[in-house]
Design a protein around this nucleic acid. Structure first.
Lengths: 224, 224
DNA sequence: GGCCGTTAGGGTCATGATGACTATAACTCA
DNA sequence: TGAGTTATAGTCATCATGACCCTAACGGCC
């Protein structure tokens, strides 16, 4: 059957390939001062799932790499450059889309938003708290959950947390990232001890002035 | 080549999608008794890279999931069922194949070979020591290296080593898996102590008779 | 100016995991 | 019967971790 199919049939049988990107940014709650994870979603402007919110994405260009396509998704959605971008997973279940067989290679990214840009929602792009990004189009609920899992893993294990922050940061800010991602309180003293033994972080000779309390020292990420 | 320029253009623009699988099995060196990692490769019977060795793979069927396609690769190549099968990575660089734009979603698998099957090479399928699988077609050298990296990670961290072995195994056999994967010697006593605290392993009341030395106890994997 | 609340940043202590090592048990083979 | 080999248990120093305490340094308030 496969061999005898003509070109048109083969065309309709070949699964379509798309690239999508889960974009995470950190936002500080104005009232509590705690950090939270946010992500931008785009509104579907065609069937299926018209009107629902979905991950930014689209077809893979003929002359762009997978990662370039993900970065393009990101620029077109947020007008920001990623500070971290990594492949998440390829989703290819048979029932992902009712209208066609669709394989999505999904990336996840961290961006460092100016607060202004994060607020600049448009008609078809809106930022959501990660915990409130549910009821999305296709299987994007699962994809977001999986991306959050990966984020948690990378934060506990490694060196991703820095990419949420600017080039100078206090240990309290960094701890805020950990707490937002892992969803639990961390002892400040123990956190400090652990990060002193981390290789890719260095103290600067500056401190952050203007706070209410003792001015904290600023640190710098020296890794890749 | 195609009956319509329109289709031909679209065809040349849309990247082709293929599934490939890196299949690992354990083999015991007859002289030293040490365990080694082997994998099967297939000979290219068409251009490009005609005659070179490559990972088993092929196009994604219209009605099969990504994982099903990988399992089919595996059956067709080795006539074995996987004891472990996981997505590795999607490779989609622009220069992977000289003749077409090709995106490969690669899986990696562990199989538990009867020694007989592992030896049964054919004209176009041959098993190689992982360390000697170099000079492959396309970017498959890199893919194998990446799969070995992932295998090492999963073994150190978790619960994959069991899937190389049968349903009953001695701790020495399990230690052999770790040593083959990690490429270093492990202290037998410390290894034993660590695995006693692992959840998904249980001692049976049987021992393995017939060896040269004190008969070792047999263990059982109780995890997923 | 002096006290207070808060965060920064340094330390202690018990606990648990880890690596190096020793000792004994149980088998085969010469 | 003893030598060689592996199985299995235990010991000890070291290191990372979590819980906790203490002092330093700021702003705000009286």
């Amino acid at each position: 059957m496969y061999n005898s199919a003509n070109v048109a049939e083969r065309q309709s049988q070949a699964p379509s390939l798309a690239i999508s990107t889960v974009i995470f940014a950190l936002r500080t709650d104005p009232s509590s001062g705690a950090s939270e994870i946010w992500l931008p979603l785009v509104r579907r402007i065609r069937q299926p799932h018209l009107g629902k919110w979905a991950l930014p994405g689209g077809p893979l260009g003929a002359r762009e790499s997978l990662q370039d396509a993900a970065a393009r998704n990101l620029r077109e959605t947020t007008a920001l450059d990623p500070t971290y971008l990594e492949q998440l997973y390829a989703f290819g279940g048979l029932d992902r889309s009712a209208t066609q067989r669709l394989v999505s290679i999904v990336y996840w990214a961290l961006v460092r938003p100016d607060q202004a840009d994060l607020a600049r929602d448009s008609e078809n792009v809106r930022w959501f708290r990660a915990s409130e990004a549910v009821g999305l189009a296709f299987d994007h609920d699962e994809i977001v959950a999986y991306a959050l899992e990966r984020l948690r893993g990378k934060v506990t294990y490694g060196s991703v947390a820095y990419h949420f922050l600017g080039d100078r940061f206090t240990l309290a800010q960094l701890r805020g990232v950990y707490e937002a991602v892992l969803g639990k309180h961390l002892d400040p003293a123990n956190f400090r001890r652990q990060l002193r033994s981390a290789q890719d972080i260095a103290a600067t000779d500056e401190v952050l002035q203007g706070g209410r309390n003792r001015p904290p020292r600023l640190y710098r990420y020296t890794g890749p």
